[in-house]
Design a binder for these strands. Sequence first.
DNA 1: TTGAAAGCGATACCAC
DNA 2: GTGGTATCGCTTTCAA
Lengths: 348, 348
Amino acid sequence: MTTQRRERAPRQADVARLAGVSQSAVSRVIGGDPEAAARIPEDTRRRILEAVKELGYVPNLSARKLRNKTNRLLGVHTFEPVFPHARESFYFEFLLGIEERAEEIGYDLVLFTSTGASDGRRRVYRDGTNRLNVADGTVLLGVATDKADLARLWQEGYPFIHIGRRDVPGAADIPCIVPDYFGITGDIAGRLAALGHQHVAYLREDLELEPYEDRRRGYADAVERLGLIDRSPGFRGVPGLDDAWLDQLAGGPETAVVSESERLAESLLRGLRARGRDVPADVSVVVLEGIGPDASLRWEHLDIPRKEIGRIAIDALVAIVDDPDARNESIVVPCSIVDGVTTAPARP
Amino acid sequence: MTTQRRERAPRQADVARLAGVSQSAVSRVIGGDPEAAARIPEDTRRRILEAVKELGYVPNLSARKLRNKTNRLLGVHTFEPVFPHARESFYFEFLLGIEERAEEIGYDLVLFTSTGASDGRRRVYRDGTNRLNVADGTVLLGVATDKADLARLWQEGYPFIHIGRRDVPGAADIPCIVPDYFGITGDIAGRLAALGHQHVAYLREDLELEPYEDRRRGYADAVERLGLIDRSPGFRGVPGLDDAWLDQLAGGPETAVVSESERLAESLLRGLRARGRDVPADVSVVVLEGIGPDASLRWEHLDIPRKEIGRIAIDALVAIVDDPDARNESIVVPCSIVDGVTTAPARP
DNA sequence: TTGAAAGCGATACCAC
DNA sequence: GTGGTATCGCTTTCAA
């Protein structure tokens, strides 16, 4: 059996005609507004529902959105393509939480992919069109965040939330989900201090993003508070790790290092071993970043609750969509430390 | 500096007022229709563009969709949640291709997540609403495809394409992207025959999905055509692998086995080894499925070009959206065989 | 209780 | 060239 295709999708008007009522009656029954629906006699209601079924009527969501300014669509805009990197779990865990929570509360997700430039980066605005407008609100994430876009979105009053802290000139506090790097790096320094480490060092990436600033401030704050001593270049703002400093480190009083990345930690490890020192026997190391599957050691490291952050982002976004005044509130999410084999009490 | 939020998004009417022209003029300039835009004096055009910039006007996509019936949004509906399984590369590679191609041709993707039932399955229709309607068309995928949903979608004339062949009662041929299992299983049988295998066996999963039917037909077809002999239960429609048959296999004339899954192949391997026989020395094995990372052997197996299929799905979908008459055409995509270490010439 | 009618924002036809 | 205006499908007053 082959059913013939219908030429045109049925509208409320068609349903109304078939049921012998007015279009508004149909709207009231369909719309599900309990208030309005309740005032409709059981009989009329049934006739309408029957007509709906017979015609296979389904509401047109664009029309609804046009009227209601809302369509239960939440956007996800990543400043880089999602899936190629998803595996590496940078985006992946966030998306897991985002999808999970969106499903729970009955929203669909729009993945904004159309805005890709040739350089692989994605912008919100392209030839004057803000595609994000199809969705009620959007979760933004990515490392290559375009601040001009953020500022403009904020300026337009478009509901959005950014995963990761960003300071945007021209906008007040934009709503972000902020992993508590400040707090956790303080805790890490505290943990090292508790292990007896007095002389510590900091390895710094060559990145000036806000999340790194938070880590650096948290660390610096704790160093001062705990009376630790750090003479490392990284602590003074110099990125990277060179031989000169490795030499000093191998021969100096430092017994613990905090590294902004696994990459730096790995070269530190090689450098130290080449100089006859080891981790954690001589130097304890904590890494401020998730650890890949082929790390040479089980680094003690910072853990970002990405999935949880994804879920929180959706809730925060919905709150902003429902009440635009909520949009100035950023949310700080606690991080944790994953134990590894790279810390030990300070050698005396 | 803090910019104040705008209370209402600007419309074309606002732009028109500011530029001192009519709304239609604005539409013509904005809409980008080269035809209409060309007929507008450079001067007017400039004034309009200036007003647009000044107000930060962006077109309302819902209104456009309402008018144009198109909004450059393509849906992705999976009958199960995507991300939890994405890693296992079942959905993942498809999505990679889908995202990639959508980005290339300037479409955004709607991930339909709102339709989840409590059992983890997702349906298209929930309380009479077909959410898919927000998108111009939708790619459907998943193992737990709901055929009633497919039939209804087809009946409604909604543009969609299904990844994987599905036969739907009540609809003519629904548009699918069909991996050529029929052809490739034939090739596999041919390859075994070329290696001298005469007596072959087939291991069958307990699944009655169309893709499995295709594999089975392709295999059966080739067995007959090539004059091979298969007395296995799997070939006669009995799923699984039991000791009785393993005993027969270990002592019988069979020198090659085609297995529908890695799982069955692994138990076959264990069973054979327990009986003093090995792969491929005594028995060659080809697996009709992607192989996980922790397979005990590099199985020779069927490879589905998932990413490519994702890309093709998007192109096919766009074709259907552009021309609804294209929707009866399914597309067959060739598969390939990945060499492994599990086949060898038949022992004499 | 029910229906008529005014928009939501953008497009395109048809006069001027 | 330019500007009215009907229309897309739905929601929501406002009257009847």
